[in-house]
């Protein structure tokens, strides 16, 4: 262990370190700045926008895709991609439903089953990518279909309801904060999102997992040559992403009080968009959790604001598309400058 971390050091030369930090900082600043600008513009455009209930609504609508995006950040930093997060989320939701509503387990067991389902799918994707050498795009595409099919098969193509599990919707919609500070009713889903973000951020910046994650993304071959078991760590990283996906599955199931087996496809693209807007590079080796959180918030502020202004939905999609263009272009410009 000691040897590997020693061997890793020349791989991230100290001379380059401040540079990377700086560019990450600017990307975040840019993203954060755009978020503030959006908030101001929408607040001026409609008096109905900047209200406590609406801000809470925006945060709540960010929770599911946000948690998905957290997991996706890990994978994207390795230089990979995970297309399966949308349908694996659905499969996790369905498994939670099967556990609670069909097997009659206590809620906490159901949650565990959901998270484990996500982790298992992530683990399989990771194995396919690292040991079977299937490109991440293809491996996770396959997993996307497998999860989608399984969700339908297991649920019998019917939604699984949680009507008998009292308190299940409170996981998303209850408000612990509101119980403690009356009036400050921020739904639990938002707290879970932020807690997951903090944990994700710690994992990425303070642990070996995070260090190897960046190393693999910057230069996989060099990391391997320096003695790191790249295959193993990749599986770990995909599994972590799977855990986040499982949590998202629980959040969506709890919010809808049901596991909808046909839902989920398309969510992976929203998650990836949030990650990219947040400044994580699709070529790997660079990215932050804070950026992803801001990216996810930008997406939902944008859709919410445009909806409140009653902009036709067709145009909402066009605008979001342009924002992704701009975000990636800004990122490229900056990197060119840095290089």
């Amino acid at each position: 262990m000691k040897r590997t971390s020693l061997a890793l050091e020349p791989q991230t030369p100290t001379g380059k370190q401040p540079f990377r930090f700086k560019s990450g900082f600017w990307q975040q600043f840019l993203a954060f700045g755009s978020l503030i600008v959006l908030l101001i513009v929408f607040s001026l455009a409609s008096e109905n926008f900047f209200q406590f209930s609406n801000i809470v609504g925006i945060l709540l609508s960010t929770a599911v895709t946000g948690v998905l995006a957290l997991g996706a950040t890990f994978v994207i930093i390795t230089g990979g991609i995970d297309l399966s997060v949308g349908t694996v989320m659905t499969l996790s939701a369905v498994m939670t439903g099967v556990s609670i509503s069909f097997w009659g387990t206590p809620i906490w067991v159901g949650l565990l089953v959901g998270i484990l389902t996500g982790a298992l799918c992530g683990c399989v994707s990771g194995y396919a990518v690292s040991k079977l050498n299937i490109p991440p795009f293809i491996a996770t595409l396959a997993m996307m279909m497998i999860a989608k099919g399984l969700a339908l098969v297991i649920s019998g193509t019917k939604p699984v309801y949680f009507t008998d599990a009292k308190g299940f919707t409170d996981i998303s919609l209850g408000s612990l904060l509101g119980d403690i500070f009356p009036g400050f009713t921020i739904p639990n889903a938002v707290l879970i999102f932020f807690a997951a973000a903090i944990i994700g951020s710690l994992l990425l910046t303070r642990t070996l997992i995070g260090r190897y994650n960046f190393a693999i993304g910057s230069n996989e071959e060099a990391t391997r040559l320096s003695g790191v078991n790249v295959g193993f760590w990749k599986i770990v990283i995909y599994t972590i992403a799977g855990v986040f996906t499982g949590i998202a599955g629980i959040l969506i199931a709890s919010r809808l009080n049901s596991a909808q087996p046909a839902l989920g496809q398309g969510y992976e693209l929203e998650a990836i968009a949030a990650v990219v807007i947040g400044g994580t590079s699709l070529s790997g080796g660079k990215g932050t959790i804070v950026g992803t959180v801001i990216g996810a918030l930008i997406m939902s502020v944008l859709t919410n604001g445009l909806r409140i202004l009653s902009v036709p939905q067709e145009w909402q999609t066009v605008v979001v598309g342009f924002v992704i263009f701009l975000a990636v272009y800004a990122d490229m410009l900056r990197r060119k400058k840095a290089a």
């Binding site: 409609s46 109905n48 926008f49 209200q51 209930s53 609406n54 609504g57 709540l60 609508s61 599911v64 969506i252 919010r255 809808l256 049901s258 909808q260 839902l263 939902s300 859709t303 919410n304 909806r307 409140i308 202004l309 009653s310 939905q313």
Partner: peptide, 25 residues
């Protein structure tokens, strides 16, 4: 009819309904 929005996705329809209610109290 003050607004017509589109989604058959349970979660997205939830969020957009909230936005409609926010915009049209």
């Amino acid at each position: 009819i003050v607004d017509i929005q589109y989604s058959g996705d349970h979660l997205k329809a939830t969020d957009l309904t909230k936005a409609i209610l926010q915009a049209h109290p």
